[in-house]
């Protein structure tokens, strides 16, 4: 029914869809806010109970410091500059490893996705390497590349590579063959085939790969820094543990969580921008 209605109003109300889009955006914002508030209820209760239990001496301060003392530890770390220094070094490691791994993943996932020959040639090896855990290769990397930055960055890159590789491959293979026929009929050249069809069609998968890869880059960072390092958030945690500075351990964990969350949100922002067309689609599905 809505079909014919839209047809009829086509000439009269050309921007009717934009109005409804605005309304929809407003409603979504509302829903978003109330969802955030609802999501906060449980953590707040937990924090309150935690603080109370600690203050009453029910839980040992050494095992589980109360939120206020963790906050205190934060303040101290920040004021001495130790926190920023460690955070900076960790970010650079994670960033470099991620860019190296994800970049290679995009490139090789693209190549293997494109050609059957390179798939047969390379994919089995990659799949084999994929299942090897970080902790198993870490000693080998140290042996080969020493305790320096290189082994750390490579370890992070190894983790970051696979999600992007696999998802880029899947994205390219998942392009609708019916749209390939369209591209043939419209005589797309090689470049247009890539920029107008393959890349946008694979984009949802690529972005998913990047999100997963970022998460794994942070994980790889922890392993790398705990393995042996004299700087970074991972080192900060290890060091604090030795001296039973449990508040600092918690502060480190919270920083990891926050950094992970922030980078994830950045990719989601990118997703919202690049996949605007899909967003619209979701809106319509909700209506039906």
């Amino acid at each position: 029914m809505s079909k014919t209605k839209a047809e009829i109003t086509a000439g009269i109300l050309p921007d009717s869809i934009h109005h409804s889009a605005e309304k929809e955006a407003f409603q979504r914002l509302n829903v978003g806010l109330s969802r955030i508030l609802k999501g906060l209820i449980l953590p707040l209760i937990i924090l309150a109970v935690w603080q109370a239990a600690g203050s009453l001496g029910i839980i040992s301060e050494n095992l589980l410091p109360v939120p206020t003392s963790i906050f205190q530890a934060f303040k101290e770390l920040a004021s001495t500059g130790e926190l920023w220094n460690n955070l900076q070094i960790s970010s650079i490691r994670a960033g470099a490893g991620f860019i190296l791994g994800a970049g290679l993943g995009l490139l090789l996932g693209g190549v293997v996705g494109f050609s059957n020959k390179s798939e047969e040639l390379m994919d089995p090896s990659f799949q084999m390497l994929r299942t090897i855990p970080h902790l198993a290769v870490a000693p080998l990397f140290i042996l080969w590349f020493g305790f320096g930055e290189l082994s750390k960055i490579l370890l992070i890159a190894k983790g970051a590579f696979f999600p992007v590789y696999v998802n880029t491959f899947l994205g390219i293979r998942g392009v609708d063959s019916k749209l390939f026929d369209v591209a043939r009929v419209l005589e797309f050249n090689k470049r247009k085939l890539f920029t107008k069809l393959i890349l946008p069609a694979a984009m949802p998968n690529i972005l998913l790969g990047i999100r997963l890869s970022l998460g794994i880059a942070w994980l790889g960072l922890v392993v790398a820094e705990m393995m042996g390092s004299s700087e970074g958030i991972g080192y900060m945690i290890m060091d604090a543990r030795q001296f039973s500075n449990t508040e600092v351990v918690f502060a480190g964990i919270i920083i990891f969580a926050a950094a992970g969350k922030i980078t994830d949100s950045l990719v989601r922002l990118l997703e919202a921008k690049l996949l605007k067309w899909r967003d619209h689609f979701k809106g319509e599905k909700g209506e039906i």
Partner: peptide, 21 residues
């Protein structure tokens, strides 16, 4: 010789690119 713009084709489904307006 092959597909091309001179033989326009309209499919049963519209087959538009969903990411383009």
């Amino acid at each position: 010789h092959g597909p091309g713009i001179k033989q326009g084709f309209i499919f049963q489904e519209h087959r538009l690119f969903p990411w383009l307006n």
